[in-house]
Design a protein around this nucleic acid. Structure first.
Lengths: 248, 248
DNA sequence: CGCGGATTTGACCAGCTTCAATGAGGGTGG
DNA sequence: CCACCCTCATTGAAGCTGGTCAAATCCGCG
């Protein structure tokens, strides 16, 4: 099912140029990266990497959404990360990973052969530093998620998830500029995948969607869309501070 | 309640010399570190850092156990990390952290002033690389914990916790060398703190301890000790693969 | 138009939390 | 040395949330 797609794009024209590992690379470094990179596309639902599989490549997500997940023998699974464009797959100095990486939507990766990439990391502090920043960002996200998984109610989990999508979609004006107009969100995953992300069952996810809809906080026009009708009520339902933790 | 304790120890005599940030430093780098470091001790229960507080120091844990935790406005809290000797507090390139750091037991830290430490990180790839490794280890631990918080039952959580302590205490022979003899574990935290770590209530923690005791899997001679009577049954109860995920 | 997967909804139940009372240590002061 | 107290821990009973099982519905697609 894998569809290799080696049509490369110039780094200078890359949509994630300014946020990915290569964010702070100079022209010369970009040339070096250009030589070791290749694009590759995975259709929604396919496995990008299996747990324990040796990593010959590291990669940046160029477009689409991929997920990291852990599975127990009896089939219970928990998503432990969501990879959006500019996020990085693989880790310097480690030959394998302890979770599965799956294409949630169609995903295009910018793959780098492992050996030359590691050499580049050693040579260029830019890249090493950027990798560190990306790792620390992931760590912060993982810790926020631990609070959600360990302590939030089903309703709070769903509200937090939708609020996160709304923020990510940049449909909320950065400065507190009053209530944003009704915002349509695209859900990149099925109810089952949302459940695995939030540590719930798909039935509970569905019920909470229905409850928020009944209360007029959201609308669900089709299975892949959510319209946020009242962002303030949604944020109240997340259990977080209204302002996202920033001191007023 | 904070008891500053500036009695320094030579790096060469440091108990965590081979595992902390400074693990791969050469003699010259150690000298540089020596100049910017100071030891500091915090009694059990005191706050080492508050969320959002500016970080003037970064530090390594020399002895004792510290915890990272997040708290919601209504008081629900979730521990998002446990810091053991050689673990690192603080992050290069970030002036503050998004969680509280608390001394779980009496804790001694090896503190480095932030500015000179960051300069050192930029100059010395050894240190930057070691920091990256420590961050990736934390990320792996965080993801394991996400699976636990999102999908494991109370019984599995307690069993996983005890199994982790047993492994950390190195009371289990590395190679599968038959059943280890009964092993006494010291619990570094109260039932309430264990509950916050595992995403449970303290009553549930207590009940699961009692259940495992009733089944003859563990003994609980006093509130700070657990004796593992049958490590195989304990590991069966964790929900993980018997061999901890390593391929047989 | 009918098929198949995804979703919604309902009914029931289990596990965990909540509320409440009792018990065990450990330290302090008389 | 012992009584007292305070914190931590255990145990019980009852209630709720979310999970499980099952059926109905929706929707995209050939």
């Amino acid at each position: 099912m894998m569809i290799p797609d080696f049509v490369d794009v110039k780094c200078s024209a890359c949509p994630i140029r300014h946020r990915a590992v290569c964010a702070r690379c100079d022209t010369e470094e970009l040339l070096r990266l250009e030589k070791m990179k290749s694009y590759r596309t995975f259709p929604a639902g396919t496995e990008i990497l299996w747990r324990g599989e040796p990593l010959d490549y590291v990669a940046s997500v160029v477009s689409g959404v991929a997920s990291l997940s852990k599975t127990m023998e009896d089939g219970r699974t928990q998503m432990v990360g969501l990879l959006l464009p500019s996020d990085f797959i693989g880790r310097p100095g480690r030959a394998k990973i302890e979770f599965d990486v799956t294409a949630t939507t169609d995903v295009t990766l910018c793959c780098f052969a492992r050996a030359p990439f590691e050499a580049l990391v050693i040579d260029t502090p830019h890249v090493a530093q950027r990798l560190m920043e990306l790792a620390l960002d992931e760590l912060d996200a993982a810790r926020d998620w631990m609070l959600l998984l360990g302590r939030k109610t089903a309703r709070e989990k769903i509200a937090t998830f939708l609020d996160m999508l709304a923020r990510r979609s940049q449909l909320i004006t950065p400065k507190g500029a009053g209530t944003a107009p009704a915002a349509a969100l695209h859900l990149p995953m099925t109810r089952d995948q949302i459940a695995n992300y939030l540590g719930l069952t798909l039935e509970t996810v569905s019920r909470q969607f229905s409850a928020l809809k009944r209360e007029g906080i959201i609308d669900v026009p089709d299975r892949r869309s959510v319209i946020v009708i009242n962002i303030d009520l949604l944020q109240n339902a997340t259990g977080d501070d209204a302002d996202g933790g920033v001191v007023a």
